[in-house]
């Protein structure tokens, strides 16, 4: 009997383990775009496939931005939208294949982890056009959609320096990888452009490959609390879902937080909104929508497209109106970056 009890205990453990992963991805698939009325359908109808990585919609920033772009395509282009979300690393390639087989064109992979699998699938299906966010896949039927994130970060860095009364600000990054280092580099450069003597604290939540870094608000909160107590009054967090921790800390200590990717003011509570100075925008939605639109109008060529300040692919948000007094200065910086008078570094 003792053996059987142990057996049952282990079975329960296994069940909890499996169910644990099941709970991560909830069933919000029924109505992908609530409130969006499907636009007039083109001939031939546009079928848009979007492959999310594990996590998917509901993160408040990156994936939701992609989802918004897809829904915009439904509303404005009359696209028929199919979304697949991976539940494990083994799902990425099959999901891309399933969408391709479903007749979707373009198929957009949201996230750089799709790179290798997309290369395989796109090579095997030359008639379908693919898009990939945040990565470059060099194939004639893949549109690589990357962002000049350092430019948006430069502007929020400048905003932070302009609004800081203590001359002491901070940056919290997710994984310490080139992608996120570009955010840091831009932010620091922007802050120094306003105030060369400013003190910029920098910390990363995890090393390359540590996926927990995108979902550790507790860690971000601890770091932010420490810096706020030390006199920092603006902290910018580029770490996916972890950024919520910084916002919490900002509310608690009455200081400023800066959001990332999406305009986080829009999804915050009224209490939090008072502390979100601005958000560095990375218009993943624009990238998704533009790709769908391009394919609809017959542009199926591959290539790298960098979304930058020039085409509003990156930028900063002004919700809340906290930047009204410094907006002119920020716009001036923006113009200088577009002109090329300021070249924003991508490495810290």
């Amino acid at each position: 009997m003792r053996k059987n009890n142990r057996f049952a205990a282990v079975a329960l453990l296994a069940t909890v383990g499996i169910l644990g992963t099941a709970c991560g991805s909830d069933s919000k698939k029924a109505d992908l775009c609530p409130g969006v009325t499907k636009g007039s359908v083109s001939t031939p109808p546009l079928k848009l496939g979007v492959a999310f990585d594990t996590g998917g919609r509901g993160d408040g920033t990156f994936n939701d931005a992609a989802g918004r772009g897809a829904c915009q395509a439904v509303g404005e282009l009359g696209a028929d939208l199919t979304e697949l979300e991976a539940t494990s690393d083994q799902d990425r390639k099959p999901n891309l294949e399933t969408l391709t087989k479903n007749g979707d064109n373009p198929v957009i992979a949201v996230g750089f982890l799709f790179s290798d699998d997309l290369k395989t699938v796109a090579t095997a299906n030359p008639k379908t056009t693919y898009g990939i966010i945040d990565s470059v896949v060099d194939l004639p039927n893949v549109k690589s959609l990357v962002f000049a994130a350092e430019q948006g970060s430069f502007l929020v860095g400048a905003a932070a320096a302009l609004k800081s009364t203590t001359g002491h600000i901070g940056f919290i990054g997710g994984q310490e990888i080139d992608l996120i280092k570009a955010f840091e580099a831009g932010y620091t450069a922007g802050a120094k452009a306003v105030n060369p003597d400013i003190k910029v604290e920098v910390k990363y939540l995890g090393a390359a490959g540590d996926n927990a870094a995108w979902g550790s608000p507790d860690k971000a909160k601890e770091i932010a609390n420490g810096w706020y107590a030390d006199g920092a009054d603006v902290i910018y967090t580029a770490a996916g879902g972890s950024g919520a921790g910084t916002i919490d800390a900002a509310v608690a200590s009455g200081k400023w937080a800066i959001g990332v990717d999406s305009d986080q003011y829009l999804t915050a509570t009224p209490e939090q909104q008072k502390h979100i100075l601005t958000s560095a925008l990375k218009r993943v939605d624009v990238a998704v929508f533009e790709t769908a639109k391009a394919v609809q109008s017959g542009d199926t060529k591959g290539g790298v497209r960098v979304f930058d300040l020039k085409d509003d692919g990156v930028g900063y948000s002004t919700s809340g109106g906290y930047l009204d007094d410094v907006k002119d200065k920020l716009e001036a910086f923006k113009q200088q970056i577009i002109d090329g008078t300021i070249v924003v570094p991508t490495k810290p």
Binding site: T15, I18, L19, A22, S25, S27, E85, T87, P94, T98
Partner: peptide, 19 residues
Amino acid sequence: AGALQIQHVPNSIIDVIKA
């Protein structure tokens, strides 16, 4: 799982069945 998602059946059902 992927094919089910296309049919608007949440893919978590697979994990539920397994469990």
